[in-house]
């Protein structure tokens, strides 16, 4: 029964109109970013070949590893993608719990199958859909950019594309940047999945679907404000620490893990509580 319920939820999560629109929006950002970067690289390459570039050409500035969507912290597309990631993660399926409670679908389902199965299937579907909504555009960007840009290893002597010694996975960034990039895609995916689950958990407290979708977005903005104004030093805002290169401060693995755990405990805690106490009627 559980497998059937999960399959049903996954089908609803992955093949909905909202999912399609979310992917179209993300892909348009990816394509805009790839085209602008390809143009810049083309100009650079032409100048490099004709000998117009004098002195050190700083060739690693056009490396794939500091120019794909997850790491290009100077570009509009990257900044916009991470600014909007709480909405991108929630839009495919994070809102569904609110919709189903409101429409009465939940009552019909939990009178037929155990509440635990239903809630955890929804949780799983929301997590996967949120994670994929962020991971797929990032992977697509990495693949498209690798068609255009050279995959040069980064060097720490230049004032761009560098991360500090204290920063999370710093050694890996210089020794194996591909693995570093993929780990960041995975981290972003996990965090986005949890963001979609936050939205699902909020559905038990508010009846407004719009509020459920936008709650994680405003929460992330609030965390960004705290990061900017109250607790400087380490990157505390998910909007910033999910970007593969530092925005303002160094990244700490402990902080990332703490956020993941806090979000997981909060969302799972609510689901576990509601699984026992939820009153459908």
């Amino acid at each position: 029964m559980a497998a059937k319920c999960i399959k049903n939820e996954m089908r609803k999560a992955l093949f909905s109109k909202a999912s399609l629109i979310t992917y179209l929006l993300s892909f348009s950002l990816v394509i805009y970013h790839t085209v602008t970067k390809a143009e810049i690289y083309n100009e650079f390459y032409t100048a490099y070949q004709t000998g117009e570039v004098q002195g050190n050409p700083m060739i690693t500035a056009v490396s794939l590893y500091c120019n794909w969507l997850g790491a290009d912290v100077t570009s509009f597309a990257t900044s916009a993608f991470f600014f909007l990631f709480p909405i991108i993660a929630v839009m495919p399926y994070g809102w569904s719990m609110a919709g189903e409670i409101k429409s009465g679908y939940t009552k019909n389902v939990i009178s037929r199958i155990p509440r635990k199965v239903y809630f955890f299937s929804k949780y799983f579907a929301a997590f996967v859909s949120g994670a994929l909504a962020v991971m797929i555009p990032l992977l697509l960007s990495f693949l498209l950019m690798s068609l255009v840009l050279p995959a040069l290893h980064m060097e720490n002597i230049y004032p761009y594309g560098v991360i500090g010694e204290r920063s999370m996975w710093a050694e890996l960034y210089y020794s194996n940047p591909f693995l570093y990039s993929m780990l960041y895609v995975l981290l972003d995916g996990i965090f986005s999945g949890l963001t979609a689950c936050i939205s699902m958990a909020f559905a038990f407290f508010t009846r407004s679907q719009v509020s459920v979708v936008l709650m994680p977005f405003f929460l992330m903005l609030l965390l960004d404000y705290i990061d900017t104004n109250v607790l400087p030093g380490w990157e505390l805002s998910p909007v910033r620490f999910l970007q593969a290169l530092p925005v303002v401060n160094e990244r700490s693995g402990v902080i990332d893990l703490a956020f993941c755990l806090a979000f997981a405990v909060f969302t799972l805690g609510i689901i576990l509580y509601k699984e026992r106490k939820y009153e459908a009627l």
């Binding site: 100077t74 509009f76 004032p159 900017t228 925005v247």
Partner: peptide
Amino acid sequence: PELGNAFV
């Protein structure tokens, strides 16, 4: 958007 100048 210069090199190394992250957008905040």
